[in-house]
Design a protein around this nucleic acid. Structure first.
Length: 840
RNA sequence: GCCGAAGUGGCGGAAUUGGCAGACGCGCUACAUUCAGGGUGUAGUUCCCGUCAGGGAGUGGAGGUUCGAGUCCUCUCUUCGGCACCA
């Protein structure tokens, strides 16, 4: 063992040795408990960033712990390799996207290896190769077979910067998720969709199994799916006899309906205009409302505007005729695009009615209460405590009862029905870009849409394509690709030229890791059966409703086609906080980026890893501090010197290789005070770290405990040198310190471990059990309170194996000195913590 | 507006079941290391009063439960995140 601490040298040495020993490779082994540690796969952007370092360091600590616990650990990594940045770079530099992508992968692979993460590199997957994306196409065909893929012309989100369509999930605050400054515009396009809405209920329902997922993620997904239970009611448009269907969650208030509002895009609008004697005026006004609605999508607090169509609709419940308005706040995409206005019990309807002088009728009043005098307050009284009034046969019912009865009645009479609406929309997967999976579909003039047969997969992305980024599918300009034969009739046909959303790639990559090279199916069922579910998934919160909902959807489809026999792929999810600098997200434009590779060069990878774990609990955001990392570096240097010193002494005594870690037992009363102190601290550290890794995951406190143990060793240095601590006890403590460190700083730990005389790397060493006897306090200074006031302390020598009874007796003996003759009412003794004497 | 998370020293944070608030680290101060700087070591470092001894206050705010509250309950303020004219 080298007495001088040179992290670069140590890290290179151990990385080479681990690779040579194939230390992180695992295979299916049904005799052993498996454990699947998964981190979200990176996009090969060129260089890893601190978020990656944090993500993979957390995963690595867990993976190493599980290895040492004796589990058969799978810990894979891959590349989310399709996507726009490579295509854009390719356009700019007149090169091929694959060139960028593979260069970046090579570079980032090197950086990850430099970080020393325990990956099984044989399982590496890149999503941009035909061996992978052919299975995206295969899944597409299965979706098509099951009616889950369909083509539809619709208004879609278009990002002018990406020059392509975006899914709803990829629009954030009206802007593109990649271009936060670029507002999304709407375009009418023919697109492929995947019917995720068919799984909305199951996505909600199965959340009950995700007990080890963060509440936050589940609630975000729940919001996103946006289930609301209500009813559709058919009104009739007077004069033209047309049916007008509305959706409401509050059918109980329908007797308070004083108008119908249509979304500006509602198909009935054009019809009503045409029936007007003076169509032009209404047409202009309607266009005006529509324009304001478009603005309202960007600016949410825009004023409510509307126009009366002059037509009325008949309320089937009471036969009343109410005016039909066009209103800018009604969404065509939600429900039926038409709503009933109940101004007395809905704030928006109230505002609108006041503005346009529409009547307001209260139909729900508080139980035993009076009709509210102030109309503004009325809509607050529509809750569970209310009773219906002015509602004909339904008077006196609670809203809950009324909803049920009115829905039943509407169904019986045929003018309505109970329905459920979801906010989530089908997943639009078509992208008008090149660097993605070709959609395996052929258009034939005589046969229509024809799926590419399985035997013809993969549909290879043609390498020679002129990339312009001009907003149309680049594949359309490659005749050899486009022009093909119909698999049905062998007639002339054209291929689909759009590619798939890259979120398709990441929806199932973690299955592929378990059998990355199989070429007869997307996954090997046996391997998946053994390794799944993923025991621990770790990644950023930003994917809460993108990747993490698509992935769940995909698994359910896979279950339905018999590929897997479970419905949720991830048992436990951990979302780490962001790495920020000076209170802001790191970004090139802000110039506050901390480059991990620069830090590796300056401090070594272990120091960077240690600092990212130590600075904050993993779930929280952490603000990078350049001086903070110095502390981590100092600690490692100190620990290294400490162990090196005793390793050197050992070597000079001629110690050869030792076997395993010494788990010797010592009688407590035969230990010197220094030995007791050291052993206690050692086992306390072990206890803390073990319990923390079993669930709490506050790695910052684990590192702090290791620091305390090292500090304790430092403080005892003189006593140790004087021989007050037996060498075997010292060695035992040092070994446990090193094993704890091996989770966080594996290179240095292995170097130290070797220095302590062990041949095997720490990963192969069983995680040591702490001994509760040693971990317990054995001599305590207990604060004594009288009537809750701190009055002093007593020293109580508590044998660690003793019970509370003994402690109580000792405490009571000593209590007298604190009460000076007053009557004791009770003594509250918190074991090992505190004595409180309550006196009169 | 709805949902979720969080408020503790100069800073990052600790206190797992209510039991010595501020572990660990950064920063700072003093001293040592026979120049400076750096490094390293030692001591100190919540605030206020006090030379010391010691005393008082203190976990966003106001109440409450309890012998005892950062932790539990009620109300409230602030910050961050998600959803949002969703009928």
């Amino acid at each position: 063992m080298d007495p001088t601490y040179d992290p670069q040298k140590i890290e290179a040495k151990w990385q080479a040795r681990w690779a040579e020993q194939k230390l992180f490779e695992s295979e299916v082994d049904t005799t052993r408990q498996k454990y699947y540690v998964l981190e979200m796969l990176p996009y090969p952007s060129g260089d890893i960033h601190m978020g990656h370092v944090r993500n993979y360091t957390i995963g690595d600590a867990l993976a190493r712990y599980m290895w040492m616990k004796g589990c058969n650990v799978i810990h894979p990594i891959g590349w989310d390799a399709f996507g726009l940045p490579a295509e854009n770079a390719a356009i700019k530099n007149q090169r091929h996207p694959s060139e960028f992508t593979f260069n970046h992968i090579d570079r980032m692979r090197g950086q990850l290896k430099r970080l020393g993460v325990s990956y099984d590199w044989r399982r590496e997957v890149a999503t941009c190769v035909p061996e992978y994306y052919r299975w995206n196409q295969w899944f597409f065909l299965r979706m098509l077979e099951r009616g889950l893929a369909y083509r539809k012309k619709s208004r879609v989100n278009w990002c002018p910067s990406c020059e392509t369509v975006l899914a709803n999930e990829q629009v954030v605050n009206g802007c593109c998720w990649r271009h936060e400054e670029t507002p999304v515009v709407e375009r009418e396009l023919e697109q492929w969709f995947w019917k995720i809405t068919a799984y909305a209920e199951r996505l909600l329902e199965d959340m009950k199994d995700l007990v080890r997922w963060p509440e936050r993620v589940l609630s975000m997904q729940q919001n996103w799916i946006g289930k609301s239970v209500g009813a559709e009611i058919d009104f009739t448009v007077n004069g033209i006899g047309e049916r007008l269907r509305i959706f409401t969650t509050r059918v109980d208030t329908i007797f308070g309906c004083t108008a119908i509002y249509l979304a500006p895009e509602h198909p009935l609008v054009q019809k009503l205009i045409s029936f007007r004697p003076d169509p032009e005026k209404l047409r202009q006004e309607a266009a005006h409302v529509k324009a304001s609605a478009v603005r309202a999508r960007v600016d949410v607090n825009l004023e409510k505007q509307g126009v009366d169509t002059g037509f009325t609709a008949r309320n089937p419940f009471n036969g009343e005729n109410v005016p039909i308005w066009i209103a800018n706040f009604v969404l065509m995409e939600y429900g039926t695009g038409a709503v009933m206005a109940v101004p007395a019990h809905d704030e928006r309807d109230f505002d609108f009615s006041v503005k346009h002088g529409l009547p307001i009728r209260t139909v729900i009043v508080p139980r035993d209460g009076e009709v509210p005098q102030k109309l503004e307050a009325a809509y607050t009284e529509s809750g569970a405590n209310g009773r219906l009034v002015n509602s004909g046969p339904y008077d006196g019912l609670t809203p809950e009862q009324a909803i049920e009865k009115m829905t039943r009645d509407a169904e019986a009479k045929g003018f309505g029905r109970g329905t459920t609406q979801y906010r989530i929309k089908d997943w639009g997967i078509s992208r008008q870009r090149y660097w993605g999976t070709p959609i395996p579909v052929i258009y034939c003039d005589s046969c229509g849409i024809v799926p590419v047969p399985d035997k013809d997969l993969p549909v290879i992305l043609p390498p020679d394509v002129k990339l312009t980024g001009q907003g149309q599918s680049p594949l359309a300009s490659v005749p050899e690709f486009v022009n093909t034969r119909c698999p049905n009739c062998n007639g002339r046909a054209r291929r689909e030229t759009d590619t798939m959303d890259t979120f398709v790639d990441s929806s199932w990559y973690f299955y592929r890791y378990t059998s990355p090279h199989i070429d007869t199916a997307p996954i090997d069922k046996e391997a998946v059966h053994y390794w799944f579910p993923v025991d621990q998934y770790i990644g950023g919160i930003e994917h809460a409703i993108l990747h993490l909902i698509y992935m769940r959807f995909f698994t359910k489809v896979m279950q339905d086609i018999g590929l897997v026999d479970f419905s949720e792929p991830v048992a436990r999810l951990f979302t780490q906080g962001m790495v920020i600098k000076d209170g802001a997200k790191m970004s090139k434009s802000k110039g506050n980026v901390v480059d991990p590779t620069v830090m590796f060069a300056k401090y070594g990878a272990d120091t960077v890893r240690l600092y990212t774990l130590f600075a904050a609990p993993p779930a929280r955001d952490f603000d990078w501090s350049d001086s903070g990392i110095e502390g981590a570096a100092r600690f490692l240097m100190r620990s290294y010197r400490l162990v090196a010193k005793y390793a050197a002494q050992r070597a000079s005594r001629g110690g050869g290789h030792a076997s395993g870690s010494g788990s010797s037992k010592w009688e407590l009363d035969q230990l010197s005070p220094e030995e007791r102190r050291l052993i206690r601290k050692t086992h306390q550290t072990l206890r803390h770290v073990t319990e923390d890794l079993e669930g709490r995951w506050h790695f910052n406190t684990d590192v702090a405990m290791a620091m305390e143990l090292a500090n304790e060793l430092g403080e005892l240095e003189k006593a140790i040198d004087e021989g007050k601590v037996r060498p075997e006890i010292l060695k035992n403590s040092l070994e446990y310190l090193v094993l704890v460190l091996s989770l966080f700083v594996p290179h240095i730990a292995d170097e130290l471990w070797e220095g302590l005389g062990h041949a095997e790397p720490t990963l192969r060493i069983p995680w040591p059990a702490y001994d509760p006897q040693y971990a317990a306090e054995d001599e305590l200074e207990i604060p004594v309170q009288v009537n809750g006031k701190l009055r002093g302390k007593i020293r109580v020598a508590v044998s660690v194996s003793e019970t509370e009874i003994r402690e109580r007796a000792q405490a009571e003996e000593k209590v007298a000195q604190f009460i000076s003759g007053r009557q004791v009412i009770k003594i509250i003794l918190v074991p090992k913590k505190l004595v409180n004497i309550v006196v009169r």
